[in-house]
Design a protein around this nucleic acid. Structure first.
Lengths: 132, 132
DNA sequence: CAGATACTTTACGTTAACGTAAACTTCCCC
DNA sequence: GGGGAAGTTTACGTTAACGTAAAGTATCTG
């Protein structure tokens, strides 16, 4: 008895908090390709992972095209040297971008700390005035 | 002699590698409000910082509306208690999101490492075949 | 067996973030 | 003083990523 785990489009939509329209749209764009039982779409765990990657990409501001490229990077089906080198370069570029994002996040985090600090000070000032 | 440093729209466009159209669009959206010398826009260092924040937001996938909100957080002009509390909550939410992005980045970074590893292995296999 | 629920396709609509083009003014330069 | 170069306004165009509505099918359910 194999673990023939599958999902309906509604299940996945609920789990990832998106609409079914969104998931069908991704299929339209060639990002997922679920099987069909009759008309109905049947998603495998692999499809689910793909969805997860897409949504993670979204949280980082990636376009669907970028996410598609990223997903493609994880299965280098190529035995062509120049293609592998190109892939390597793409990976490198992504890493450069990721590093930039990391720095941006750290800066923003710091600024949020400062903002919260000033916010707290303002609140304290209000309190002290109240207690005159 | 004060440091009356200013910038033209073209200078800023070049520095940040965007078009002047983009900068004018941000003004349209109320994100910057440069002074005018006659018709011509004159940007202050503060405007320049604002632009920087917007573009950093873009790199993190923020919409202009989100960036506007963030920028607003840095100058809490309010002495209204409930508004300050609301601001505090917004700051908190942002931090939650930032933390998620951080985790996403770390995961992606790891996967890029793996992808690069497989890429290198494939390249090595090609080399060894060449040298028979 | 009527109705609710979940699925399907088709297709037009919407929003954000600019791009692009046209037509105009200002200033500088030889 | 003719012509770049850089600025301006106005306005229509474009793309991505879905939203929304309509109309139909399959399944279960009291």
């Amino acid at each position: 008895m194999s673990k023939k785990q599958t999902y309906s489009i509604g299940e996945l939509a609920r789990e990832f908090d998106v609409t079914t329209r969104t998931i069908r749209f991704y299929e339209d764009q060639g990002l997922v390709a679920p099987e069909r039982r009759g008309q109905t779409r049947v998603y495998t765990p692999a499809d689910r992972v793909t969805l997860k990657l897409i949504l993670r990409g979204k949280r980082l501001g990636f376009s669907l095209a970028e996410s598609r490229e990223l997903i493609g990077m994880y299965q280098p089906q190529s035995d062509n040297r120049s293609q592998l080198l190109a892939l390597q370069e793409k990976i490198h570029q992504r890493r450069v971008q990721l590093d930039q994002q990391l720095r941006d996040i750290q800066l923003l985090h710091q600024e949020l700390d400062n903002a919260e600090q000033r916010c707290l000070e303002s609140l304290n000032q209000l309190e002290s005035k109240e207690n005159v």
